[in-house]
Amino acid sequence: MDVLVILIPASLGLGAIGLLAFYWTMRSRQYEDPDGDAARILRTDYDDAPPNG
């Protein structure tokens, strides 16, 4: 059972990374314009001015 010492923090850590990533996407307003973002990624011009939270 010694392996739990590594596995449990590892699994919680991975989950926490996901949670932080979600927090970041919320803070930087990445859900403001889902349709627009889907379209923008297909353009060839570089989006030099992404929205900022």
């Binding site: 403001e32 314009d33 889902p34 349709d35 627009g36 379209a39 001015a49």
Partner: peptide
């Protein structure tokens, strides 16, 4: 100065 389009809205 700047433009930003929101396609969803």
């Amino acid at each position: 100065e700047d433009v930003r389009i929101n396609l969803t809205r």
